[in-house]
Amino acid sequence: MSTTKIGWIGLGNMGIPMAEQLIKAEYPVTVYNRSEGKASQLMEMGARVADSPQGLASETDVIIIMVADDQAIEAVFEAENGLLKAALKGKIIINMSTVSPAISKKMAAICAAQNAHYLDAPVSGSVKQAETGQLVIMVGGDQSAFEEVKPILDRLGKLSKWVGETGAGNQAKLAINSLLALYTQGLAETILFANEKGIKSADLLDLIGNAAIGNVFTKIKGEAILNDQYKAAFALKHIVKDLRLAKDEGISTPLAKTALKTFEDAESTYGEEDLVAIFKALK
């Protein structure tokens, strides 16, 4: 059993299975979530529950955050009982949320002033990969701090890679999610075009799956379209957020601009569904 005490903030669709991986690896884990009630299954596995980020920080060595956006990060750090109210000296804070490089640089500077390390470490992968410890983790920040917590990250993912200084992990994630949007819209448009020409979706997907262009993503999302199953593994509203962040960071290529408009147009109707619901929006 590891003696490193881990604090986990954020128990959403990704946070719960990721925290479970660390509990199974016999790390002492303390959790906090804004909405009460989400910690019950982790408590049954042995997790402790803190009443605030401040309280969580006071009893842990490494703090991992998995929340929705920049605003949620600011609340975690700066609220009345937030992390900044605790003594952070010597601690490593790992922000695994998909947020802007700007918020990471801001929080990293604040942490450094308290002699603590901040790493931006967003993940590629969805709920299934979180449940099986098969995420891909891209990390920005101090490389020595990354090496110190790499054994923890390796419990969460199949690849944990340092890619540069603070904000680099966020930049890498925005690049990957831009490709995710292009993949999703491209798959949807391809199936719709084939359908218009009388080709069945199942037949087309069988062809794609056996061709060089087939991959795990086209298989999973193709099956979702076939089964008319759009429960969110990664909500469409989140890809809109990420494409906007990428735009703010300067991405302005033709496909990226088109994808942003397509997903923005669909958000009001399909935002809570999986991003592959873009198929319904385009249909």
Results as ranks from 00 to 15, higher is better:
Glu273Ile: 00
Leu255Gln: 13
Gly15Arg: 12
Ala235Leu: 02
Ile63Tyr: 06
Val67Met: 13
Gly167His: 05
Met107Gln: 10
Ile239Pro: 00
Gly214Tyr: 07
Thr60Pro: 04
Glu249Ser: 14
Thr60Asn: 13
Arg34Asp: 09
Asn170Ile: 04
Lys173Glu: 04
Ala172His: 05
Cys111Asp: 01
Ala87Lys: 14
Lys106Leu: 03
Ile92Tyr: 02
Asp206Asn: 15
Ala281Phe: 15
Lys200Gln: 15
Ile16His: 09
Phe217His: 14
Gly222Cys: 06
Ala108Gly: 06
Leu204Ser: 08
Glu189His: 05
Glu78Gly: 03
Gly222Arg: 08
Ser268Phe: 02
Ala246Cys: 10
Asp61Phe: 03
Thr166Lys: 02
Thr190His: 04
Phe146Gln: 03
Ile92Pro: 08
Val136Ile: 15
Ser126Met: 10
Glu131Tyr: 11
Val276Phe: 13
Leu174Lys: 02
Lys257Asp: 13
Asp203Cys: 07
Asp242Glu: 10
Ile278Gly: 10
Gly37Asn: 08
Asn227His: 14
Ser144Leu: 09
Glu273Cys: 04
Phe279Ile: 08
Ala113Trp: 02
Ile64Lys: 00
Leu187Phe: 01
Ala256Met: 12
Leu179Thr: 03
Ala50Leu: 00
Leu179Pro: 07
Gly7Ile: 01
Phe193Val: 14
Leu243Pro: 01
Val136Glu: 09
Lys280Tyr: 12
Gly125Gln: 07
Val99Ile: 11
Ile239Val: 13
Phe234Ser: 15
Lys150Thr: 11
Ser97Cys: 08
Val31Arg: 12
Asp142Tyr: 04
Glu264Ile: 01
Ile65Pro: 10
Asp265Cys: 05
Ser268Gln: 14
Asn115Gly: 11
Ser252His: 13
Arg48Asp: 13
Lys221Phe: 07
Glu36Thr: 15
Asp228Trp: 01
